[in-house]
Amino acid sequence: MKPTRILVGLATLVGLVLATSHVTSDANVTPPVENKPAASYTSAAEIIEYGQPNRLTLQSGVAMIVDDREGVMLYGRNIERQRPIASLTKLMTALVILESGVPLDEPIKITRDDRDRLRGTKSRLGFNGVFTRHDLLYAALGASDNRAAAALARTYPGGEEAMFQAMNAKAQQLGMTQTRYVDSSGLHNGNVSTANDLVRLVNETHKHALIHAMTTTPTFRVTDQASGRQIAFRNTNRLVHRQSWDIALSKTGYTSAAGNCLIMQTTIAERPLTIVLLNSWGKLSRYGDARRIQQWLEKAERRVPPTITASASHI
């Protein structure tokens, strides 16, 4: 096409735009709303209809998948069944600590009162070591360290009992009516909840950027203020170490009574989700379930037929 024709065409187009703008302004008429295509994402209802979640086979005794964008449950199994939750407890521990306003840079000495006298679990935090409250939160959330959780409760204003009361009060405030806490680590089987309640907890803890960072960092170090020694930790959720997963919040848990547990806020196929998996008895089955959920959603997206909303809007 010759340059002169291009210029003429452009001039004509500009003239039409200016003329339309002038008429609309003089007549004081609201311009018509453009007929835009519908949102490009697949709705939760379409995923449920075409994804056939009843065919999703998981190894966890309790499972819940929630579309966070719409607040719709995509899949649920035994979501109101009350069960021990092991170290998933530590999410509430961190939430209460952060909302209490206690200084995170305050040094806390690890004592023998912080040892696990119930199950005898070990810790990399030595007795007489001194760590900031920030670093203890990191160890409790990222590495699921029980001694760190105990020290956080011991040094809470008013002590352990005040801490447990605050945890239960926060649960009630969030509408977690089937949840009870009796310690800060989750070692006690009296710490119980349901998948439905835990989704509420995840939604609340996700508001804190610090919890996001502490639960999704693959590896980190804390510093013993007494000796200057750095102690390396590794996140207990193996999925945060994989680039194929986009995880915004994470927590694992295990006791013989609770089984293997996993909570995540993640994005799969551009869909933000909350996933709760409880009572998974195989050591790796919770991760296998997460992978099965990932594959199911990706396939469900492909099964949904092209929407006719966009073309219908022009009729």
Rank of each mutant, 00 (worst) to 15 (best):
G126N: 12
G9T: 06
W245C: 10
S60W: 09
A209Y: 08
I6Y: 12
D67V: 03
Q178Y: 09
Q225H: 02
D224A: 00
P306F: 01
M73Y: 11
V66T: 14
N128T: 10
N35P: 01
Q52Y: 11
S280R: 08
N237A: 05
N168L: 06
S43D: 06
A232P: 01
Q172F: 04
M167Y: 10
L104G: 00
R77A: 10
A27T: 09
L136N: 11
S100Q: 11
E301Q: 12
K109M: 15
H314G: 07
E106Y: 07
P103V: 13
L58Y: 04
A19S: 09
L297M: 15
M92V: 04
A226P: 02
N203T: 00
R286E: 05
E49L: 14
L7D: 02
M73D: 07
Q230G: 05
I48V: 15
I47E: 02
D113A: 12
R124K: 15
A166I: 14
D183A: 07
I268W: 09
L18S: 04
G175L: 05
R242V: 11
I315H: 11
A139V: 01
S311Q: 08
R115A: 02
R124Y: 13
E34M: 11
H212E: 15
A166G: 10
I97T: 15
G9D: 05
A139G: 02
V222E: 06
G142D: 11
V102R: 09
L118G: 03
V33K: 12
A148I: 00
T121I: 06
L239A: 13
L210E: 14
V199L: 07
R117K: 12
A300N: 02
S185C: 10
D135E: 15
L277C: 00
R238W: 05
T93S: 13
I268Q: 08
V8G: 04
Y138R: 06
R303F: 01
L104F: 04
P107K: 08
T121G: 10
I79N: 13
N235C: 00
G129S: 00
N28W: 07
D246A: 15
T266V: 10
P107F: 03
A162F: 03
S87T: 02
G228E: 04
L262P: 08
T111Q: 09
D68W: 11
T89Q: 13
A171R: 09
F164R: 11
R69I: 07
D116E: 03
H22Q: 05
A290R: 14
A300R: 07
Q82M: 05
E204A: 14
K90T: 02
T219I: 03
S311E: 10
Y254Q: 08
T12Y: 07
W296Q: 03
L262G: 08
G175W: 09
T42D: 02
T252K: 04
R117Y: 12
R124W: 00
D105Q: 12
P3G: 03
N189D: 13
T111F: 06
T205N: 06
D68A: 13
E270S: 09
S185Q: 06
L284I: 02
R303K: 13
Y287A: 06
R291T: 14
I231S: 01
Q172N: 13
